[in-house]
């Protein structure tokens, strides 16, 4: 019999268990609510106590085990996604932005540094980063605007909790030499402040609450580019509405007919596959077979002619204008609805 055996069975030890158990129960409730997509928060201590019940000499007894604990380390991971899709620009445009979303997919809070690179392979021209070139989309407009705060490396590096995201804009000018149809790429790279490198690399004591930080599959670094497409096409669309009620007046009352007239014109360049789409206004009902293109009637059905009423979502008037250039002149689209 060792002294350790005696100690384990001693009353002091047992009473400690009794205190420990209720604390554990409370901690469990709190931690359960904190679990997130990024995983169990870094620094969480998970305790385990087993229990045995048994009958000895006709008496039922219960005994608890020691506490086996594990501590959750911090996993550093980051993801960058492009939100803006391909951005249409013209040569000489200034301050054109690409929108990215940066998400801390690790399980602890982390500070990230941001960098832009607009000299990339695989494109036709190099966008020219504005000064400064990286902004927080502070007003969440999705576009570069006056309210957006510039990123200042080392000063306002975004610190994000697990699962938190921040929208970042890369702002570039389009060179005058960019030609219609050309693509220019610009890239956002995001690196964890604790460090980046090979997945599995560890930073002792650098995680939340002093736990070790370990690089996840991203290696603490995420890179994503976006594209500018030079499109010299400029169009003008003018829409007007005429009210005719059933009493011969121009009052917008239920039953009145609204005649919408839209004029579409390419003012610069040539558009390919142009389509006019206009959602039928809420509170009105589309008047069947009322679409006219340059005076010619188009059926509502999805068929060979250029127009239709698309009812796959909210009823939408669609006129497929196709390839259109300045030489085609003004296209006039008319359709009618009645007020419900």
């Amino acid at each position: 019999m060792t002294v350790a055996t005696i100690a384990r069975a001693s009353g002091i030890c047992r009473s400690r268990f009794q205190i420990y158990v209720p604390i554990l129960a409370v901690a469990s409730l709190l931690l359960g609510n904190l679990a997130s997509a990024a995983g169990t928060p870094a620094g969480t201590v998970i305790d385990n106590i087993a229990e045995v019940t048994f009958d000895l000499n006709g008496t039922t007894a219960t005994q608890q085990s020691n506490v086996a604990s594990i501590t959750v380390e911090e996993r550093i991971d980051v993801v960058v996604t492009l939100q803006s899709g391909q951005v249409l620009v013209a040569a000489n445009d200034a301050n054109r932005s690409l929108l990215f979303s940066v998400t801390n997919t690790g399980n602890g809070s982390e500070t990230f540094s941001l960098a832009i690179d607009s000299i990339l392979a695989g494109d036709d021209f190099d966008p020219v980063p504005a000064v400064p070139a990286i902004y927080f989309d502070t007003d969440l407009s999705g576009d570069f605007s006056a309210g957006d705060v510039a990123y200042d490396p080392g000063t306002n590096d975004p610190n994000m909790a697990a699962d938190e995201s921040v929208d970042i804009l890369l702002v570039n000018d389009i060179p005058s030499t960019a030609l219609n149809g050309q693509i220019g790429r610009s890239e956002l790279s995001v690196a964890a402040g604790t460090g980046s490198g090979a997945p599995g690399d560890s930073f002792a004591g650098q995680g939340d609450g002093g736990v070790d930080a370990v690089l996840g599959s991203s290696g603490g670094l995420a890179v994503q580019f976006g594209e500018y497409l030079v499109s010299d096409v400029q169009m003008s669309i003018v829409k007007s509405v005429l009210v005719n009620d059933q009493f011969g007046n121009q009052d917008p009352i239920p039953g009145a007919t609204l005649t919408y007239t839209a004029t579409v014109e390419v003012t610069t360049g040539a558009a390919t596959g142009a389509a006019f789409r206009d959602v039928v206004p809420t509170g009105t009902t589309y008047s069947a077979n009322s679409i006219l293109l340059n005076g010619g009637a188009l059926s509502d059905a999805v068929d060979a002619d250029l127009g239709e009423l698309d009812t796959s979502g909210a009823p939408t008037v669609v006129v497929r204008l196709g390839d259109l250039s300045q030489a085609d002149g003004i296209q006039t689209i008319i359709f009618q609805v009645t007020i419900d």
Binding site: M1, V3, T5, I6, R8, A9, S10, N48, I49, A50, E51, V52, F54, L56, N57, T59, A61, Q63, Q64, S65, N66, V67, A68, S69, I70
Partner: peptide, 20 residues
């Protein structure tokens, strides 16, 4: 004495340990 104490403590008990 130690052994006796251990037996005394141990009687009515099972030793239970958990490791992770």
């Amino acid at each position: 004495l130690c052994a006796a104490m251990a037996f005394a403590q141990g009687s009515g008990h099972l030793e239970l340990t958990t490791v992770v």
